[in-house]
Design a protein around this nucleic acid. Structure first.
Lengths: 240, 240
DNA sequence: TAGTGGTCTAGACCACTGC
DNA sequence: CAGTGGTCTAGACCACTAA
C-alpha cells in the first residue's frame, strides 16, 4: 500500500484537525502535550511532532516558546492600500491590538542603503523598530527607515503610533505611491525571539517603499510576519 | 550553555550554506545525500534532515520527490499589475518558462461560488487548470474561473496561453481592476503532486479577482506557488 | 519541581528513482 | 539493483515555563 508510509503522522493530523473543527479545541486553547498525544494515538513523539509541524505549516496551530501548542486565531486582514493604521484596522476586526516600540535611533546610510533608497551616502536616517500583535500574541516586527533630510525634525516627533499619520499631517506627505515586495521566508534569531517563535519559523516578509506626490522616497519599511497571522489584501489597477 | 541544544543542526545548516554561498554548490545542483552529510558531520540522519528542512524554509534549497535536495534557483518576480503574461515576464528574467494545461471544463456555480463571484447560482463557468514553471521546475498551479454568461463563447477560445490577452483583445475587457489576497499556506495532495513537492510543503496562495471597467467580475483565479519560487511585487496608490 | 517543548541518537523498513 | 528520500521507533538529556 502506497499509503502506509504516510499514515501515522496523517492520522494524528486528522485527529487534531477534527478536534479543532468540531470546536472541542477552541481558538487560543492549548493542545494536549506531545507525550499525551503520542500515548493516545500509539505513536512515537517524533511522529507526533511531524504531525504538529504539518498543522503549523497549514496555519491551524502555532507554538509559543516552550509553553505548548495552541489553536491559531483568525488571520489579520492587512490592506496596505487603506489609509488606516494598525491599531485601527485590527480593532475593527475584533482583536485587541498592541504596539511596542523596540528602539529608535539614527543610522547613516551606507552605499547599499543609499542606492536602495535613492539618497546620498552618509545621509542620516531615523530607524524605528517595533513589534505589533493582537490579543497578547505578537504577529510582526518591523523596521522603518525615514530619511531625515527630507523630513526635517522627524526624529523628535512621536512616532510610537502612526508614522503614516505624522507624514500626512505634519509633513503634508500623504504617501501616495506604494511599492510592495512580498516573499515567504523564515525568522532569524532576533525576529524569532521578539515574536516568541522558534528560529526558522516560516514567515512572510514585506518590503514597503512609500513615495510622496513628487516621487521622492519618504518611508522604507520591512515587516516580518508570523506566516499564519496574515492575510494580505491589495487592490490596484492594471498598468497597460 | 544555552547554545548547546541547537548546535548540531545549525552546524549542518552553516556548513551547507557556506558551500552554497562560496559557489561550491551551484544553482540547481544536487546536494550530497542525507547519509553522506550525516557521516561527514558526525550527526544522525534525523538531525541532518532537521537542518535541510531549515534551509528549505529559508528558500535556499528544495527537494524534488525522492530524487534529492537541490540548490534553489532565483525567485521569479511576479508583478500582477503589469499587463504581461507568464511566458513573457519569466523569459525576460532569463528563465525558460513552460505552461501546461491540466484540464478545461464547464462547472456550474453552487451557492458559495455564486455569492463569491457575484453571479447567479447555476450559472456556467469555464474552469481552467494549469501548471507553470521555469527551467523544467514547476512553480505554481492555478485554477481559473470564467463566467460564461459575461464572456460568450469563451470556452471555445484558445486559453492555453494568455487568458488576459484573450479578454483584452477578443472581449474588449482589459481587466482594469484587480483585487489580490495573499496568504502563506501549504500544498494539498493534488497540488503537491503536480508541483513534485511533498504534501504539506509551504506555499503561497494568491486569490485574484479581476473586474472590467464596469466593475463586473470577469476572471477569478487561485494560484498555489512553491513558497521559494516567488517574489511578489505590487505597486499601487493609497486610497484616502 | 514537575512538566513542557527542543534536540539528539542509532537504528529500521518502505517506496521510489535512475542506472 | 543500488541508492535516495520518506517514515517510524524507543529511547535520552537539556532548557525553559509555570505552579
Amino acid at each position: 500500500m502506497t499509503e502506509r508510509a504516510v499514515v501515522k503522522a496523517v492520522e494524528v493530523v486528522v485527529w487534531l484537525r477534527t478536534l479543532i473543527h468540531e470546536r472541542t479545541l477552541l481558538t487560543g486553547m492549548r493542545l494536549p502535550s506531545e507525550r499525551v498525544i503520542s500515548e493516545q494515538l500509539q505513536t512515537s513523539r517524533v511522529t507526533t511532532r511531524e504531525a504538529l509541524k504539518m498543522l503549523e505549516t497549514q496555519g491551524l496551530i502555532y507554538r509559543s516558546n516552550r509553553r505548548g501548542w495552541f489553536v491559531t486565531p483568525p488571520r489579520i486582514n492587512y490592506d496596505p492600500g487603506r489609509a488606516m493604521f494598525f491599531m485601527e484596522y485590527v480593532a475593527e476586526q475584533g482583536f485587541k491590538p498592541f504596539s511596542h516600540q523596540i528602539s529608535k535611533k539614527r543610522v547613516l546610510a551606507d552605499t547599499a542603503l543609499a542606492s536602495l533608497l535613492s539618497i546620498e551616502e552618509g545621509d542620516s536616517l531615523v530607524e524605528l523598530k517595533r513589534v505589533r500583535g493582537a490579543d497578547n500574541r505578537p504577529v510582526y516586527v518591523e523596521t522603518i527607515l525615514l530619511p531625515e533630510r527630507r523630513l526635517p525634525g522627524i526624529y523628535d516627533h512621536d512616532l510610537a503610533h502612526s508614522v503614516t499619520t505624522v507624514l500626512k499631517e505634519e509633513y503634508n506627505k500623504p504617501c501616495m505611491n506604494v511599492e510592495l515586495e512580498v516573499i515567504s521566508s523564515s525568522l532569524d534569531k532576533d525576529a524569532a525571539e521578539v515574536l516568541q517563535a522558534p528560529v526558522g519559523y516560516t514567515s512572510v516578509e514585506i518590503h514597503r517603499v512609500s513615495r510622496d506626490a513628487q516621487g521622492a522616497l519618504v518611508e522604507y519599511d520591512v515587516e516580518h510576519w508570523r506566516h499564519d497571522a496574515l492575510k494580505l489584501k491589495v487592490e490596484f489597477n492594471i498598468r497597460s
